[in-house]
Write a protein that binds this DNA or RNA. Sequence first.
DNA 1: GGGAGTAGTGGGAGAAAGTGGGAAGAAGAA
DNA 2: TTCTTCTTCCCACTTTCTCCCACTACTCCC
Lengths: 144, 144
Amino acid sequence: MLIGEYRHTIDDKRRVAIPAGFRKEIGKKVVVTRGLDNCLFVYPLAMWQKVADRLSGLSMGQADTRSFSRFMLAGAIETEVDSMGRILVPDFLKDFASLKQKVVIAGIHDRLEIWDEARWKEHTERIEKQADVLAQKLGEIGVF
Amino acid sequence: MLIGEYRHTIDDKRRVAIPAGFRKEIGKKVVVTRGLDNCLFVYPLAMWQKVADRLSGLSMGQADTRSFSRFMLAGAIETEVDSMGRILVPDFLKDFASLKQKVVIAGIHDRLEIWDEARWKEHTERIEKQADVLAQKLGEIGVF
DNA sequence: GGGAGTAGTGGGAGAAAGTGGGAAGAAGAA
DNA sequence: TTCTTCTTCCCACTTTCTCCCACTACTCCC
């Protein structure tokens, strides 16, 4: 179970260190994809396989599912965690998530999320304000 | 599984480099054909065989399926990846996809797509804006 | 409080990938 | 047949990437 948030930096070679505590669980090969809310998702390879299988099952005939699988598949890359525990973030993903130097790496159950620090702050602050509203919704669906 | 996007150039001899990471999987012989959404599809030969079979299996009675398989089959050419990992794009396909110098090569599961860089940008930006639709789709296929 | 070990960051060297150009061969026209 | 043009194959250069090593800071344990 991946939990917690960490502050790291991306160097000019586009490398980000995976927090040491996550490395064992996430494995050596990972897949980085475009995520929601302008962040990046990092999946362990096995986890990605499941997502990819479902995506490849979608029909190519319809324009919207075609665009969707393009978005997810072309927007993903398989990469290896190097000997120092870092992964490479290609330019197009860096741009997509507007990553500057400082990033936040968050563990969300079975994936990691990579956020630009400023956006993360903004996002969490907004969520905090709505915490009571969210709690109620979660209550309604029976989480609490 | 072919995933990721890469920026390459077409030289004046109409050659495009296949990203090194794709070469092993895509093999030596490939088929390039007119794709959907104004891009080109590049299939490994074996994969193309399946697509072609499926196309020829379509009912010839209906005018629209007839013209669709004509669109795919007539526009297809078989070509070899040269020793430097490049393929030749004939003029009619280059024109069809409005390819200028800068192109994007995207891996979409079992095929590559070649896009003019400007069109690709336009296309992906349009998709990104539909975040709510994306989230719903992701939910449907069980990513969350 | 001090030392050892681990995590995060930065840099350098060697290797590989991408791109451009030239030469040789094939095809077509005069 | 010969000349020209277009194509294809090969070589070389430049840039980018990748792997490895080193330094610093922080933490944990003695």
